[in-house]
């Protein structure tokens, strides 16, 4: 017998179907994207249960607001990433600040540096972002990566890098301005 193979649908196509109330399209989007999104949220939140909570809320948001997705502004996968990142960061910012005197926390932060560096090194060598991050001074690159990849705020990044708050703020700002110029 013939086995009918249909091409897997793109996230854009699925979101268009979800906007019409098609639940199996949401299930297909979950199948294709939830594992990536939970992993992204977990890298920020360090906890699987919180990461899954964030992704659960994100899929409910997608279900209700799929019609508001505008493909001319960016990709559907990017839209999903942004929803998940925003929720995870809100949760991080809302929870109690870390106590950096605590040696256990410092070990945890050590993992974050490894995460930040691993993400950078996993970028394709041909990727413009990799090239432009590579053009930054090491300290600016590290500050940008710590904040973006692991969700540290300025204060946490400053404590971790052992420099004054103002220094980290200016590294991040100068780093992201240089990135935008390099990427444009």
């Amino acid at each position: 017998m013939f086995h009918l193979m249909t091409d897997p649908k793109t996230a854009e196509q699925l979101i268009a179907q979800i906007a019409t109330g098609n639940r199996s399209a949401l299930a297909a989007l979950f199948e294709g994207e939830s594992g990536r999104l939970v992993a992204i949220a977990q890298r920020l939140l360090r906890r699987r249960d919180l990461a899954e909570e964030v992704v659960q809320e994100a899929f409910i948001t997608v279900w209700r607001q799929a019609a508001s997705f505008d493909g001319s502004k960016g990709s559907a996968r990017g839209w999903l990433t942004t929803i998940v990142r925003n929720r995870a960061l809100n949760l991080l910012r809302d929870s109690a600040r870390m106590d950096f005197e605590d040696s256990e926390k410092l070990t945890e932060l050590g993992d974050r540096q490894a995460d930040a560096r691993a993400a950078y090194e996993a970028l394709s060598i041909k990727d413009a972002l990799r090239h432009c991050l590579g053009m930054l001074d090491a300290s600016k690159r590290e500050a940008v990566l710590l904040c973006y990849v692991t969700g540290l705020n300025h204060g946490e990044a400053a404590a971790f890098m052992n420099v004054p708050l103002g220094t980290v703020k200016s590294w991040v700002r100068r780093g992201t301005v240089a990135l935008q110029e390099c990427l444009s």
Binding site: F30, R36, A39, I40, V55, Q56, A119, L129, T176
Partner: peptide, 27 residues
Amino acid sequence: ERLRGHLGKLDDTVEPLPANPALWARI
């Protein structure tokens, strides 16, 4: 959106986890 698009490549370096059927059931 442009900067988000570029930096999103860092997010996409994660090792995706398998889709969790229990999470889908909750959704």
